[in-house]
């Protein structure tokens, strides 16, 4: 058994809230993060805020990763944050992948969004950002 396998793992939830059914990006990210040595809890499509909060709590994840392509992020993220906070998950950061306009980023950071990754972001940048957020 190598040290690699036994050391503390970064645990991340990858979920797709809302109604758009395009999860290829989320799957690609999940796989890339696995290959970076993360433990990825993948819950798939059409997750409600309550489902995301319950998964984040039970799985004790370090980060919640959301994939939103529908443009509804300014509605979804505040609601998810609120339900997460109700579940005592204030300290769990969110990262966001998808089509997110630049001007929305400051507002999102107020909801604990610590990283926003648009199309063309390199995997390495995503991995580095998460590792930094988790601060290990």
């Amino acid at each position: 058994m190598s040290k690699e396998i036994m050391s503390e793992k970064i645990r991340i939830l990858i979920a797709k809230p809302g109604l758009d059914g395009h999860d290829r990006g989320a799957k690609v990210i999940a796989r890339a993060l696995r290959d970076a040595g993360f433990e990825v809890i993948y819950t798939g499509l059409r997750q409600t805020a309550e489902m995301i909060a319950a998964s984040a709590l039970q799985e004790d994840v370090d980060v919640v990763g959301l994939s939103i392509l529908s443009g509804a992020h300014m509605a979804l993220v505040p609601h998810i944050r609120e339900v997460m906070n109700q579940n005592d998950l204030q300290d769990v950061p969110i990262i966001l992948g998808g089509i997110i306009p630049e001007e929305d980023k400051p507002a999102l950071s107020e909801y604990g969004v610590k990283g926003v990754f648009g199309p063309g972001t390199s995997m390495q940048e995503i991995i580095d950002t998460i590792t930094k957020i988790v601060n290990r």
């Binding site: 190598s2 690699e4 396998i5 050391s7 793992k9 999940a30 796989r31 993060l33 696995r34 290959d35 970076a36 040595g37 993360f38 433990e39 990825v40 809890i41 993948y42 798939g44 799985e59």
Partner: peptide, 8 residues
């Protein structure tokens, strides 16, 4: 190989 996992 990588020590990571996808828990689905």
């Amino acid at each position: 190989f990588t020590g990571g996992a996808i828990l689905g």
